[in-house]
């Protein structure tokens, strides 16, 4: 029986725009198990990205609690939250993942700069991460010299390199063509099935969602149904 890695209890999030209070998430409760690959889906404005940001520690809820590996993260702030992110979360975004001025290897190395690892140790882990995503021969290339798919794979390598507790992906294949998207999604699936990584992925693409173990649908800030897939 897999344990609950992430527990969200009655999470609400609202923004204030001028005089209006806009509720994005309504008293949402959710448990994510260790080793799960979860796809969060829903129309635009449904709050899925907001939920992802909360789970990843990029934002704080207006109400409710979030517990990851037994640690409350809704009470962390500022530097502590950044520290928590560094140790526990790897991110893959739709755009802007890589710094264009750095090589692939240097991009992958970025999270390790926040640790106390030696230079050689950092280089070793970068090498491993790039090998896992199959791009060890592209280590010295700049993002402008990589294809869209390769760039996303480098982003995945970076997300992995510090061995985080969970991987958070926001529309990782949204900017890629079908074939490349499938490659990237296959990689994510492998990471989950063979390496046991816990992944939470926001997507609007049903075909991308099929790569996941579970799907969650959201609308207007609430979960609608839970669908299970083998």
């Amino acid at each position: 029986m897999a344990e609950t890695l992430i527990a969200l209890d009655r999470i609400s999030k609202h923004y204030v725009r001028g005089k209006e209070k806009i509720e994005v998430l309504h008293e949402l409760s959710l448990g994510i198990e260790q080793g799960d690959f979860l796809a969060l889906m829903g129309p635009s404005g449904s709050g899925k990205t907001t939920l992802l940001n909360l789970i990843g520690g990029l934002d704080q809820p207006s109400a409710g609690t979030i517990t990851v590996s037994g640690q409350r993260i809704d009470t962390l702030s500022g530097g502590r939250l950044a520290q928590w992110r560094a140790r526990n979360v790897g991110f893959v975004f739709q755009f802007y993942n890589l710094l264009p001025v750095l090589t692939a290897a240097q991009n992958v190395e970025l999270p390790l700069l926040l640790t106390n690892l030696s230079k050689s140790e950092r280089a070793r882990r970068v090498q491993i991460a790039l090998t896992v995503v199959g791009l060890e021969d592209r280590a010295k290339h700049k993002p402008s010299e990589l294809s869209g798919g390769q760039a996303q794979r480098v982003a995945i390598a970076r997300a992995l390199v510090a061995d985080p507790t969970l991987l958070v992906c926001d529309e990782p294949t949204g900017d890629l063509d079908r074939k490349t998207a499938d490659e990237v999604l296959g990689l994510l699936q492998t990471l989950n099935r063979e390496h046991g990584k816990t992944l939470i992925m926001v997507t609007h693409d049903p075909r991308a969602a099929e790569y996941a173990r579970h799907q969650l649908h959201m609308d207007k800030g609430r979960l609608i149904e839970a669908g299970a897939q083998a």
């Binding site: 992110r85 979360v89 970025l110």
Partner: peptide
């Protein structure tokens, strides 16, 4: 700006 945001997501603190 987006790149600096990404650095923050990785765990770079505001002060960093």
């Amino acid at each position: 700006v987006p790149e600096l945001a990404v650095l923050k997501t990785i765990g770079f603190r505001d002060g960093g």
